[in-house]
Design a protein around this nucleic acid. Structure first.
Lengths: 207, 207
DNA sequence: ATAGAAAACGGACCGTAGTCCGTTTAGTAT
DNA sequence: ATACTAAACGGACTACGGTCCGTTTTCTAT
């Protein structure tokens, strides 16, 4: 699919993605130290409690280095998410139907939403932290890709303005919304997926 | 409607709503000074540029006083919005159809979304500032009321889980989404309202 | 091996939201 | 009028994200 390759998985990778061009050895070492420390802190205290100072300290690295590496707190969270996010993306782009290609747009959208809801429930803290503080969350590349995916399916299904409709659906699946529905407002995940199915089914049935 | 009176317009009014029980005269005076200064700062520099320090300074008041009065930056923004918000609420609760009672749920929902979109475009900065930093935006009372309103209409229209569906629609109308669509991504307001109409129409047509 | 340049480093520094607590002041009871 | 109390005040203080810039380290070319 021609859409895929134009959307990078990282925010803009402030410098030296994993091992691309020449990355200085000290930089590589520090990146490893930082990611390692970050994962430990997240595991132990949760993503919300992670401060950039604490991270720098734990990784035995200057604060400037943290920001050079990840650009911002949101960037760090995105990096922490990127493996899981890539896997989810592979699922809806290349995986088996109904999530992947081969099923009807309707079935694929239902499956996409369900997958997304469970994905968010597993990575909610990180996702919220990645989205917050980012001036327009839509800049998060993974969000852009999801949006494009839904846009294509909605167009196939005959929606008049698929770009805008995809945006509505993107916000309906907002991490903050999903996490708070389940954890704060006590809605069960299955109610969310059922309602999503109802939404997509009705939306694509008409005409 | 019995729903109305249980939902206060203010967050929790840290102390002394406009003129309720005994409000000390100095408190009243300072509240007036603060609101006045805040409106001037917002008019001149925009809501985004308003800092609590600058506000305290301009109102000739200590910083502690600002926070005692409004609780937080978000609380201040909500207070600034409350007149406009009340008017919008009157529109969909008591005003003429199709926004107010008397039209079909479908027409009322379409009108509600359109009204909301234009409302957000007029008060976007304030709304974004009121929503941000508020741990779950759903706590904003006006949001709660809108949600209830949509929930009732969706139930009338035969939606299986109107509470959850209303939440999806609430997020589809998120101020950040609407403002960024129009001002950052260059989508015209009429595209947004057209798409909203398509969403509601299809959603409520089936079965 | 050496020197020079580019990249990375570190931590002091800044702006801002929000808290704390000792001081002041408005109402009230005598 | 006076004294008392609870509310309100103010501004120093903290926490945190993010920036800046002088210093150090790595790589490369000779």
């Amino acid at each position: 699919m021609f859409l895929v390759s134009f959307i990078p998985l990282q925010p803009d990778a402030p410098m030296g993605t994993p091992g691309l061009p020449h990355e200085r050895s000290d930089a590589a070492r520090n990146r490893e130290r930082l990611l390692c420390a970050a994962r430990e802190l997240v595991d132990e205290f949760g993503a919300d409690a992670l401060t950039m100072d604490a991270l720098a300290c734990k990784a035995k690295v200057g604060k400037g280095t943290v920001f050079r590496r990840f650009g911002s707190r949101a960037g760090l969270m995105m990096t922490l998410l990127s493996d899981a996010e890539s896997e989810f993306q592979r699922g809806f782009m290349f995986g088996p139907p109904p999530l992947g290609p081969g099923a009807s747009p309707e079935d694929r959208l239902v499956a996409f939403g369900e997958g997304r809801i469970y994905f968010v429930l597993e990575n909610g803290e990180l996702l919220k932290a990645a989205g917050a503080a980012t001036r327009n969350r839509f800049d998060v590349p993974a969000t852009k890709l999801s949006h494009r995916h839904m846009e294509v399916l909605l167009r196939e299904a005959g929606i008049a303005d698929p770009w805008v409709m995809a945006m509505s659906l993107t916000y309906a699946l907002d991490p903050e919304r999903i996490v708070d529905d389940v954890r704060v407002r006590g809605i069960s995940p299955s109610r969310l997926t059922d309602s999503w199915r109802e939404l997509i089914t009705r939306l694509l049935k008409a005409t």
